[in-house]
């Protein structure tokens, strides 16, 4: 688990148009961009980011403000509406 790596990737989404473009490309392109990040994400994190599972990532300790940038910039199929839904769903699972 490398919370910082996920946080840094989400922060880069705000400032790097080419990263946004890659994350909105075919899944293999998005995955390659995520795997190229430094520091590297764990295998679990790569899959959760690819799937836009921001609720789970938040529960794992990733920064919610930074996670919401995926929805704000609409990368990886995320939207702000989806962000809210997934965060609420994850919270519901843990009570």
């Amino acid at each position: 688990m490398s919370v910082y790596a996920v946080n840094k990737l989400c922060r880069r989404v705000v400032h790097e148009p080419r990263l946004r473009e890659a994350l909105n490309g075919p899944r293999a392109t998005a995955e390659a961009a995520i795997r190229a990040a430094t520091p590297p994400l764990s295998e679990q994190e790569v899959q959760l980011v690819l799937d836009g599972e921001v609720g789970e990532l938040g529960l794992m300790g990733c920064n919610y403000f930074l996670l919401h940038q995926l929805g704000r910039w609409e990368v990886l199929g995320m939207t702000l509406k989806l962000h809210g839904e997934r965060v609420r769903a994850a919270q519901g699972r843990v009570g």
């Binding site: 919610y64 996670l67 929805g71 509406k81 962000h83 809210g84 965060v87 919270q91």
Partner: peptide
């Protein structure tokens, strides 16, 4: 204010 976190409003981020 909570942005993107678990204490968001029911219909918002």
């Amino acid at each position: 204010v909570e942005i993107g976190g678990p204490r968001l409003a029911p219909d918002s981020h």
